[in-house]
Amino acid sequence: MSAEKLSICIIGSGNWGSAVSKLAGESALAQNEKFERRVNMYVYEENYEGRKLTEVINEKHENVKYLPGIKLPENVVAVPDVVEASKNADVLIFVMPHQFVRKTCHLMKEHIKKTALAVSLIKGFDLHPETKGKIAMISNLIEDILGIDCCVLMGANVAPEVAKEQFCETTIGCKTKEQGYLLRSIFEKPYLRVKLCFDIDTVEMCGALINVIAIGVGIVDGMRQGHNTKAAVLRLGLMEMVKFGELFIQDCQKITFFESCGMADLVATCYGGRNRTLGENVVNSDKSIDQLEKDILRGQSFQGPLVAKEIHEILVERNIVDRFPLFTAIYKICYEDMKPTEFIDCLRHHPAHKFSRKSRPSIFFY
């Protein structure tokens, strides 16, 4: 990193991207000896009430479409061209639907600083013919295309609550303390506590899998089941997350699941996230997921169904579908017309209820 002031760019402008721009903009103003004043936010251009969304954001200092009612710092500037927004940045904060990352990075790769540091707040995996049967992290995809290091940030961070400065925690997965300290100086606030963690892949994996489990909780809500049933989904979902990490993440550390990126994010997403809302609507509506996405999110994306599909393809390739019945059931409800009422049977017959005397001692029994 240069000794000169550092420039920050946000790649993405949904509700979470806009909330993050508030954090970054305030940090740039408060630490003017360290950061450039201007913080660019790449905004996919669209019309809002007959005007360009970027123009409205820059005039009102508010993302009126995706984070209404929250004022953004005046030093946050909406830019409709991702190359223009990112070309001079020292810190690139990726906050966009994971299916668009590959294309976006290819647009950026010839123009960014090779000394820049990226951080991904994106929940999902990269499915590509070259990665068939493997877990391909979005952070690795960013690194491979851009040729720079990429850290991750995941946690119990429902965007509107962060934007309203309600207390929360988050986890930054990083390779070095220097990277972690830099990113913490951008994200940490009195109401947002940051924990650094070197188990990057596990931190990122948690963020992706949690959205799938949240669909299951929403299905339980849609069926008018109670808190006991939701608790079972949370517990069994966490166990499948841990098992998934043991199989696919080298040196996966179970303690990471008890950081904000793990258990806390699981609870927050399953009670207050958009994928929980999707699960509930899957039960109570005959509309497709695509139509529900248009009706509920107004241009944003449910990431849970796509991640469920990605997980299922990997499990099929490895021939281990039967070891993840909760993930499999949610995939089938989303894509194969499995009846939501059958989800309770998945919980009832889950292998986690079995105990083997041959199992090695663990807090997880399957």
Rank of each mutant, 00 (worst) to 15 (best):
Gln250Trp: 01
Gly262Val: 06
Val220Gln: 07
Asn228Pro: 00
Glu259Cys: 01
Val220Tyr: 12
Thr229Ser: 10
Ala264His: 13
Ile249Gln: 08
Ile249Gly: 06
Val242Ile: 14
Glu259Pro: 02
Asp265Phe: 00
Ser260Met: 05
Leu238Ile: 03
Leu236Asp: 13
Glu240Pro: 07
His227Asn: 08
Ile255Pro: 00
Met263Pro: 04
Val220Arg: 05
Gln225Asn: 11
Cys261Gln: 00
Ala268Gly: 12
Asp251Leu: 06
Thr256Gln: 13
Val233Lys: 02
Ala264Phe: 03
Leu234Trp: 00
Cys252Asp: 05
Gly262Phe: 08
Gly237Tyr: 01
Arg235Trp: 03
Gly226Phe: 13
Gly262Trp: 10
Met223Val: 03
Gly222Lys: 02
Arg235Ala: 08
His227Pro: 01
Lys230Asn: 11
Gln250Arg: 09
Val267Met: 09
Ala231His: 04
Val233Trp: 06
Phe248His: 11
Met239Arg: 01
Ala264Thr: 08
Val233Met: 12
Gly222Asn: 09
Cys252Ala: 12
Gly262Asn: 13
Cys252Phe: 15
Ala264Gln: 13
Ala264Val: 01
Ser260Glu: 06
Met223Ala: 13
Val233Glu: 10
Asp265Met: 09
Gln250Cys: 02
Val220Leu: 05
Gln253Ile: 04
Ala264Arg: 08
Ala264Leu: 09
Gly226Val: 13
Leu236Phe: 12
Asp251Phe: 05
Lys254Pro: 00
Gln225Asp: 12
Thr229Ile: 14
Phe258Cys: 13
Phe258Trp: 14
Glu246Tyr: 05
Ala264Gly: 09
Met239Cys: 10
Glu246Arg: 11
Ile255Tyr: 14
Arg224Gly: 05
Gln225Thr: 02
Leu234Phe: 01
Ile249Asn: 03
Glu240Cys: 11
Ser260Gly: 12
Met263Val: 15
Met263Gly: 02
Phe244Gln: 03
Met223Cys: 11
Val233Asn: 08
Gln225Val: 04
Gln225Trp: 14
Ala264Ile: 08
Phe258Asp: 11
Met263Ile: 15
Leu266Ser: 10
Leu236Pro: 11
Met223Gly: 07
Glu259Asp: 05
Thr256Ala: 06
Gly222His: 03
Ile249Lys: 03
Gly237Pro: 04
Thr229Leu: 04
Val267Ala: 05
Ala268Ser: 15
Asp265Glu: 13
Asn228Val: 06
Lys243Ile: 02
Arg224Pro: 00
Phe244Ser: 02
Ile249Cys: 12
Arg224Ile: 01
Ala231Trp: 02
Thr256Val: 14
Glu259Trp: 00
Phe257Pro: 05
Asp221Lys: 08
